[in-house]
Amino acid sequence: MSDPSLYTFPSPLEGYRDLPPLPNEISDDGKSYINPPAEKPSEAYEKFVAPIANDRRGGFDVHIYFYQTKPDQVTFVKELWERIRREFPELRIYKIFDRPVGPHPVGMFEVNIFTPAQFGAFIPWLVINRGPLSALIHPNTNDHRRDHSQRATWMGERFPLDLGLFKG
């Protein structure tokens, strides 16, 4: 279901058409372009872009997977879960499921992220601290199948999800 041809995509330039051309001046690093200053920062710094949820369910879910039959991963996931609860108490952190649940084929726990600032802090932290575990990061829109497939991002080993649980 992650086949992009199954979906439509609005132009990324929607709302930015008919503007003056961008400059071609190269910055001091010799590789990147110098961008003109924006009138104001992007709203994406303050809230998630539509159709991502900006409500109590959270804009993003992070599912952190482990093989429940591997004792070293069971120990590691418990330690990671505790550390996340201590360092990121503002996030919603679910209990550890020691068996497959929902579309998830192995044990996991879930973390909900509510703001772009939380996303910007937690995801880089997880990149460094997830150890041998895999993580699925997906937005929360009203299209669960697409959120868990075409819009999903993976860290580490990708697990096949049972997308048949999502109707549509």
Rank of each mutant, 00 (worst) to 15 (best):
K40T: 07
L126G: 12
F122S: 04
N112E: 09
G58V: 10
Y94L: 05
N24G: 12
F109G: 06
V77W: 05
K70A: 09
F119M: 11
I26V: 14
F60W: 13
G131E: 12
V77Y: 05
G131M: 09
Y33P: 12
V62W: 13
P100V: 05
N112V: 00
A117F: 12
I34K: 08
G30H: 12
P36H: 01
V106N: 02
Y94C: 01
V74T: 05
E46P: 00
K78L: 07
D29T: 06
M108Q: 13
P37F: 06
N129S: 11
R130N: 07
Q73G: 03
S42C: 01
S27I: 00
Y65R: 03
I123A: 14
P71D: 12
I123C: 15
G102V: 11
V106Q: 11
A53H: 11
A117I: 09
Y67N: 15
R83F: 04
L91F: 02
A38H: 06
V74M: 04
I96A: 02
G120Y: 08
P37E: 09
R85K: 15
P41N: 03
T69E: 15
M108P: 04
I52D: 02
Y33G: 14
F66N: 00
D98C: 06
R85S: 14
F76W: 00
F109R: 06
V49S: 08
G120W: 12
D28W: 03
S32T: 14
G58W: 10
A50C: 04
G120T: 06
R57N: 14
G107N: 03
E87C: 00
P36E: 01
T69V: 10
A44Q: 03
R83T: 13
R92V: 04
S32A: 08
Y45C: 01
V62S: 11
A50Q: 06
F66D: 02
W125L: 09
N24E: 14
G59V: 05
Q73M: 08
V127D: 15
R99N: 06
T115P: 05
D28K: 09
V111Q: 09
K78R: 13
S27T: 02
R86L: 07
R85M: 11
R56F: 15
P100T: 04
K47S: 10
H104F: 02
R99E: 15
V62H: 11
P116S: 07
P124D: 08
I34Q: 06
I84D: 07
I128A: 08
P89V: 01
